Every structure is written in structure tokens, then in C-alpha cells.
Amino acid sequence: MALNTPQITPTKKITVRAIGEELPRGDYQRCPQCDMLFSLPEINSHQSAYCPRCQAKIRDGRDWSLTRLAAMAFTMLLLMPFAWGEPLLHIWLLGIRIDANVMQGIWQMTKQGDAITGSMVFFCVIGAPLILVTSIAYLWFGNRLGMNLRPVLLMLERLKEWVMLDIYLVGIGVASIKVQDYAHIQAGVGLFSFVALVILTTVTLSHLNVEELWERFYPQRPATRRDEKLRVCLGCHFTGYPDQRGRCPRCHIPLRLRRRHSLQKCWAALLASIVLLLPANLLPISIIYLNGGRQEDTILSGIMSLASSNIAVAGIVFIASILVPFTKVIVMFTLLLSIHFKCQQGLRTRILLLRMVTWIGRWSMLDLFVISLTMSLINRDQILAFTMGPAAFYFGAAVILTILAVEWLDSRLLWDAHESGNARFDD
């Protein structure tokens, strides 16, 4: 018995066209964080690309023209004298008006014999932002004059995390709450300039795509075929072959399989920071003279006294001054041990922890910024005066060393310790 099946006739004509040209192939790229070699397709503007294995951002879609970056830099340069030299806060102490600005706080630190601690604050609040705007201006002028731009481009990517104007702005709020127990506070004209400078700096850093600047100024022929001998440069993120001198053909720094002496430098910085954190938390970090009496505060006791007036601000200072430094030390110690013992479990967790400490590390400088600003506000000789204690130097040095330890660690070593050939990683 035959089955009668109805015929289905399409209502619209289906047209099949042959592909007349070869589909576009992607360029081969190595991930600078996990060293995976993959094919990167062509990316349009405002599109980002991520590593298929570790999800690290390979290409950032946010990109401004150099002219727009230069305009932002010149605007920031105009704001800087007002943000640093004009009063941020006014207080009335014992019937006398006192003005506080950024430069005055750094000068008070240096004047009291601790120039190293003052230079830490100076670099993060004044030096690094000033280098940022002058570097962008150098790129703008240098591109037109045919100057060598490689050193500036190499420095810009590392400079971003040292620009800490946003953290200093939080420190202004913390210092205001600490001082309000002794005097009446009012915002100064410099505060508005400083807030504007923070906003412009944040926007500029978020749109400063150094890798795209490398592509514009020093374009290189990408690798179009897969080759395990391809290496990625950690300076400019170019994937290719080393030249005859073993250097990256684009930025001219040595092109090595792994960062040289990464573990040794990381261990040295980490152990030194552990040693410095002990006096930083045991010795007094601030000293207040009130009517001839002397009151010393460690980091913890200062947080407890701050909690009596504002528990939320005390929580912020606790996280930045105690929780973050010790968390960074514990995480980095764990990561280094996992590399030495070739741990194969929990790779995803370790990668996330490394990215976390990379982002939060700079916030530990908050305590030094609060001390710097408070020193310029309260300084009335023996009637009422505020000065920093010996722990300030140890704390600042420990924070900087932990930042350097994270920067010096080559994250690809975590993958080397893991089993080879993993296309995915999980716990």
C-alpha cells in the first residue's frame, strides 16, 4: 500500500549564491595573561575582544583620537594649579581661619623630617597626573615632529594605576569627618577644581587605549598563520617573532617567553612588605597634641575612634588600611606557593584573586592621604596640633611594595603550573 505524501511548494523562490571570495581570516594573537594562541577576527570600533580561555580583555573598544586626548590633557593642565594650590577646605580653629590644600599637606610631611613619605604622596597625587598630561601632550606634538614615541607609550600603561586623584578625593571626605570634632569646616574653591580634575582624569584614563596608539604610530604586520613560536610582548602586546637582537619589532624591548626574574622580584617585594606591615600596624601612625597632652593612634585605634562619629567612614578606612593590605599579602603568598608547588586545582579562583588584588591594591594609600591633609588643617603649635607617627613611612612603603609585587608577577606562570593543553579552566 503506497502512502500519498503531499508536496510542499515554497511560496518564495530560494536563491543560492556561491561564495565568490575567501572568507576573511583572523590574525593570530597570544593572550598576555595566559599565553593562549588564538585567531582574533577583525574588530570594529566600539567592540571589545576577550581571550577565549581566561576571559582577559585583549582589545578595548573604547578609543579616543589623539586630538581629543590632547584637549583633555590641556584642560587638566589648566585645572591643576587651582586643584593643588587653592584651598580645598576652610576650618575655623580657636577663632582663626585655616586653609588646607594639597601642596601644603605634602610640605608639612616633608617639613617634619619625613621627606620619603611626603614624596610618596607627591608622586601619586601630583607627579603621576602631571606625567600623564605631559605624556599625552608629548605624543600629540611628537607625532607631528617625527619624534620617538616608544618610551612614552611604554610608560603610559604602567602609569595608570599610580594616578590616585580619586583616592585622594575620598581622603578629603575622611579628613573632614575627623577634623569636624575640633573645628567648623567649609569647602574651599580649590575643592571644585579638584573634583573637576578627578572627573576629567577618570574619563581620560578610561578612554586612553595605549594598544590602539601603538597600532597608529607603529603598525606591524600581524601573524596570519598559526605558529607556536609566536611570542607576545608584555610592553606593547604585539604578537610576532623577535628581531635579530631578540627584541620586539614594535617597542624594541627584549621579547622573552616569560617575564625575567618574575618570581624572585615578586618574592622579594612580598617578604619586604610583610616585614614592614608589622611596625606599620604596631607603631603610632598619627599623633595629636591637645592642650599640651599627647595622644597617639595606631591604624586600628584611629579607626575605632573614627567609628564613634561615623561608622560608615570608619568601615571604608578599615577596608583600605587593614583589610586590603593583608588580603593582598595572603593572596600573593598563596599564588606564589601554588606556582612553586605546581598546583593544578582552583586555577579559576587564583586568576580571579590576582585580578582582584590588581584592582584594589592602590586604595591602601588612602590613610597616607588623610594624614597629609589633616596635617595641613590642624597645626596650632602646642594648643592643638596633628602630626604623623613613625608607622606612616612603614605603611606607605608596604603598600608600594605590594603594588610592585602584583605588577611583577607574570600571570602566565600560573598556567605553566597548571596542566598543559587546557582550553578551559575551572575549579
Rank of each mutant, 00 (worst) to 15 (best):
A2D: 10
T5V: 08
P6Q: 08
P6C: 10
Q7S: 11
Q7H: 10
T11L: 08
T15D: 13
I19G: 14
I19H: 10
E22V: 06
R25W: 12
P32E: 09
C34D: 00
M36S: 12
S39P: 06
S39F: 12
S45A: 10
Q47V: 12
Y50P: 02
R53D: 07
R53L: 10
A56V: 14
K57E: 14
D60I: 08
W64V: 15
T67F: 14
L69V: 14
M80G: 12
F82I: 12
G85D: 14
P87L: 05
L89R: 06
L93A: 03
L94H: 01
M103T: 11
Q108L: 15
G113P: 05
I116V: 09
G118L: 00
S119A: 10
F122N: 04
C124I: 04
L130Q: 04
T134H: 09
T134R: 00
I136F: 14
A137T: 05
M155Y: 08
L156K: 04
E157R: 13
R158H: 15
K160Y: 08
L169D: 01
G173H: 02
G173S: 04
K178E: 01
H184K: 03
H184S: 11
A187T: 14
L200N: 14
T201C: 10
T201D: 03
T204E: 05
L205K: 15
N209S: 07
W214Q: 06
F217C: 14
Y218C: 08
Y218T: 05
Q220K: 12
R226T: 08
D227V: 11
C236E: 00
Y241Q: 09
Q244M: 05
Q244R: 12
R245I: 05
R245G: 06
G246C: 05
H252W: 02
R256D: 06
R258H: 09
R258G: 02
R260F: 08
Q264T: 01
Q264G: 02
K265F: 01
C266R: 00
A272C: 04
I274F: 12
N281Y: 04
L283V: 08
L283M: 06
S286D: 00
I288W: 00
Y289G: 02
L290I: 12
R294P: 02
E296W: 05
L306P: 00
A307G: 09
S308M: 08
S309A: 04
I311N: 13
I316T: 15
V317H: 00
F318P: 00
K342L: 09
R350P: 10
I351W: 15
T358K: 09
I360Y: 06
D367F: 00
F369V: 02
I371N: 00
S372T: 11
S372R: 01
S372F: 06
N379T: 07
Q382K: 02
M388P: 03
F393L: 13
F393D: 03
F393I: 12
E407Y: 10
L409R: 03
D416K: 08
A417E: 10
N422Q: 13
D426H: 14
